[in-house]
Simulated assay, not measured.
Amino acid sequence: MIVRRIIGRLSLLALLGGWPATQAMAQQVPVPRDTSFTVHSAFAKALKTNPGISIARPAAPATIEARLNQTYCTLGSRALQLDVFYPKARRKRGYPAVLFIHGGGWRSGDRSQHVAMAQQLAARGYVTATAEYRLSTEALYPAAVHDLKAAIRWLRANATAYHIDTAKVAVWGFSAGGQLAALLGTTNGDPQLEGTACHTRYSSRVQAIVDVDGTLAFIHPESGEGDDRKGTSAATYWFGAPKTEKPELWLQAGALSHVTAQTPPILFLNSSVARMHAGRDDMRRQLDAFHIYHETHAFPDAPHPFPLFNPWFDPTLDYTAAFLKRVFN
């Protein structure tokens, strides 16, 4: 209860316009984590309507190595960290890299939730990293975008150590992470969202996007984000204001607003919950107009957190690997 009260007060400060001082403080002291979204809480909820599911816990492949708790950017005394997984075998041309971004409504969740997927993909010939980023309890939009672009720059800065092919970098995200992955990829080179901290000599551009049930547009007929009638929504907390007060931020954060001829290829993997991929079909039409390669695979009976569970973990991995092989080879 005490943690939730502290989180609520921080969020209230943001909504009342007192965030800048709070954000500066958040860079100096730890912020209590919102643990409302975890693998186990999501599993308990999904199990009610999907009794045959199980949490995906494949063994770590023997062919990969790991370096954990690597600091990719420091803001004041706040160290942002990621975990890296990579093949033991070395090859001269290097491996494509994939940054994994967790979900949790931009205020919960953690990078451990996609370690299993990152490990399995690493065994197929990729350098993978699962990154943390500042959540809305600590810093408002676009801080998370700045953080994750810094994580991509870190991968390039450390390309020699991990044998990364810097011309082949992808982002993979689930839910809020999917939204962030799509936004990162569609804003390649956009100075408004680049951020100014950490490894700025390196590029944050990505060459492929995997959006797993992440919204593509916040202000859209299909979107359920920002409905505050029963309480402040996760997106409202993240933006620090309702969509009626700061529509420019809500529009900017949607990847649908940024599609151009330079947008990278994208893979959409979706559950049965349509509002979680709001704007997807409009985005596919835009991609078609620019002749940009994209794929869509849906699991009609799957709950929203499907990539965390069997029987959907393996096909999610297979679709991801096949897509990346196609666009990077």
Rank of each mutant, 00 (worst) to 15 (best):
T236Y: 13
I53C: 05
T137H: 09
G224Q: 04
I164A: 01
A167W: 00
T260E: 03
H220S: 07
K243Q: 15
S41F: 03
T296F: 10
V327I: 13
Q207F: 10
D227A: 07
R153G: 05
L80D: 08
G240E: 11
L287C: 05
K45T: 15
T22D: 08
G178K: 02
F313K: 03
T244R: 13
H40S: 02
E225W: 02
Q120G: 00
P305W: 08
A14W: 09
G226T: 07
I6W: 14
G103A: 04
I164E: 02
G109K: 06
A59F: 09
Q207I: 04
K168Q: 11
E225V: 09
K88G: 02
P96L: 06
G52N: 05
P61Y: 05
R111W: 10
N69W: 04
E245Q: 13
T22H: 04
T63K: 06
W172L: 02
A118T: 10
K45L: 09
Q113I: 02
L68M: 06
A255L: 06
A274S: 10
S77I: 14
G240M: 11
L193N: 01
S36L: 01
S136F: 03
I53K: 06
S11Q: 15
F85Q: 10
S223A: 14
K325T: 15
L148M: 12
G173I: 03
R4L: 07
A322S: 15
P307L: 10
R134G: 00
H146F: 14
A302L: 12
A182T: 12
V31F: 13
R285N: 10
L15I: 08
I7K: 09
G226D: 01
A21K: 15
T166F: 03
S233E: 07
R107M: 14
G226F: 10
A42E: 10
F290N: 04
F239S: 03
E132A: 08
L10Y: 13
S233L: 00
T244K: 08
P58W: 01
T236L: 13
L251K: 13
F174E: 11
V29A: 14
R285W: 13
W172R: 00
Q192L: 00
K246S: 11
L12E: 15
A302E: 12
A60S: 08
T63C: 12
G103V: 01
Y319M: 03
D281R: 10
Y126M: 04
A197K: 13
L15S: 08
R205H: 07
G224I: 02
T187D: 00
R67W: 07
H220A: 11
W154M: 01
H258A: 02
A60C: 07
A176N: 05
T130V: 07
Q262I: 00
Y237G: 06
Q23S: 12
A116P: 01
R5F: 15
K230W: 14
P264S: 09
A170I: 02
A253G: 14
V115I: 15
L80S: 06
G240F: 11
K230S: 07
E222Q: 15
E225S: 12
V210Y: 00
H114D: 05
W312V: 05
P311E: 14
Y72W: 05
L183P: 10
V169I: 15
A46S: 11
A21R: 14
F37L: 07
A56M: 05
G76A: 13
F290Y: 15
I152M: 06
D301P: 01
I292C: 09
Q28F: 15
